[in-house]
Design a protein around this nucleic acid. Structure first.
Lengths: 249, 249
DNA sequence: GACACCATTTGAACGTGTTCAAGAAGGGCT
DNA sequence: AGCCCTTCTTGAACACGTTCAAATGGTGTC
């Protein structure tokens, strides 16, 4: 209950930068530090065990024991076992951004940018493919805070969409201004589709997903290019109108 | 608690035909009957409780008690609580077929057929929207037998695709023969997308889903119509090639 | 009738995620 | 110092899904 606020308040920066700027003294504990430290300890331990044993096989008792705390303590910081995944979620979001940076900085071609970003997204997730399925199961429940469409995931979702906005804005492609406005979100949605495919992908090294990306990017590129074609104008308007209709409830 | 009757007797539309290995020397009557009856009783009771209280809120103990059997007995017939959903799955599949029948029989226009089938699919699911979300959660796990892509769901999946094959075959639309071959499966995939949208749809009476259908059907119709256009031929080939590539692992 | 066999049924027991009432650990105040 | 208040920590207890060795019961065989 109480930890909901703390958890949801600053989820973005916990993976990389610890909130310890300078005063590294042991006595410098302004009330917050002790709790935050425990929180991090539990999260780190949990993610490590998830990686080592898988999600379902890792029990809350094991996490607590390994972290050297009581099981109830974990529930003081995290509402449920599933909420521990949120940490994984945020961390990978950030890793995706970092991995996509080179392509976004150097490449101008739309297709190349999109392709790079999609592959980068898969790259950072590869180590977790085995238990991503279970994790995905949790995310699939609409009422779950882990759902990519949920309010709680809103920051992470916005951050993800921002990457695709970058893909569009930094590209040399010329396209319909109205489409340009909607494209980032549409690309993000496609990305969710790719992730869905990836989760289900049982081929070695998930190479089918790689091929899906390589195949679908030129298609999207072509479609986007064709968007200025006269014959397709009405269809484009139709799509945009539909999106608008659905969005306004 | 000998409630043998009402629950089991009412719905005679059980899709599972009794196994008739005709040609075996054994007597066909008594041995199997008792077990099958219990199995049905448990399934009926479970589905009723799911409808009344929701999936998560219905405990296996409650199902067993209500059915007048021991918990272990339910596990003799069903591997897990999730496996009980498979019954729900099959039943709705059949209901979809039935509900779509009138449209498929009377309508010739492709768009109208597709629209009718999609709305019919939502219609039969409406009563279960509240717990469909939880049920969907189970189906989302790739390893789960409930996954629409799993081997266990193969029959139900084929049956569903068959509906869309009917949509295509019975329509007056003229389209590329290669596309025609793939279209049923593509439409089924779109249907899965619509269901996904529906599960997440929180608008009253899920009216956003209805609008999504009404909006997307003309689009698909248009796209299918355009498929014979010269400019789009290469793109179409590209799509079909991609599907082929992915399919062959 | 007696026995064996196998499908069926039982309910206690196990391990799990989660809750909760109680306490410990400090820091700020008088 | 003494007290209060918030933050943090504890571990037993609960309800659930699931398992399993044992009991039951009907059917075929001798």
């Amino acid at each position: 209950m109480t930890c909901v606020t703390t958890a949801a308040a600053e989820p973005a920066d916990e993976p990389a930068a610890p909130p310890h700027p300078a005063g590294e003294g042991t006595e410098e504990k302004p009330r917050r530090a002790r709790g935050e430290q425990t929180r991090q300890l539990i999260l780190e331990t949990a993610l490590r065990l998830f990686r080592e044993r898988g999600y379902t096989e890792t029990t809350m008792r094991a996490i607590a024991k390994e972290a050297g705390v009581a099981v109830g303590n974990a529930y003081y910081y995290f509402d449920s076992k599933e909420h521990l995944i949120q940490g994984f979620y945020d961390r990978n979001q950030l890793a995706h951004r970092v991995a996509a940076e080179p392509v976004l900085a150097n490449e101008k071609d739309f297709a190349a940018r999109l392709r790079g970003v999609l592959h980068a997204g898969i790259d950072v997730n590869v180590p977790y493919h085995s238990f991503a399925a279970t994790f995905f199961k949790s995310a699939a429940e609409p009422s779950s805070p882990l759902s990519p469409f949920s309010r709680e995931s809103s920051p992470a979702r916005e951050a993800a969409i921002a990457i695709f906005r970058d893909v569009v804005d930094g590209s040399s492609a010329k396209l319909d201004p109205e489409l340009r406005k909607e494209l980032p979100e549409l690309l993000w949605l496609s990305w969710m589709g790719v992730v869905l495919f990836w989760v289900y992908d049982r081929s070695p090294d998930q190479r089918r997903t790689r091929r899906l990306i390589d195949g679908i990017v030129p298609l999207v590129d072509r479609l986007v290019g064709l968007s200025r074609l006269r014959v397709l104008r009405p269809a484009l308007r139709q799509v945009l109108a539909l999106i608008d209709t659905i969005r306004r409830d």
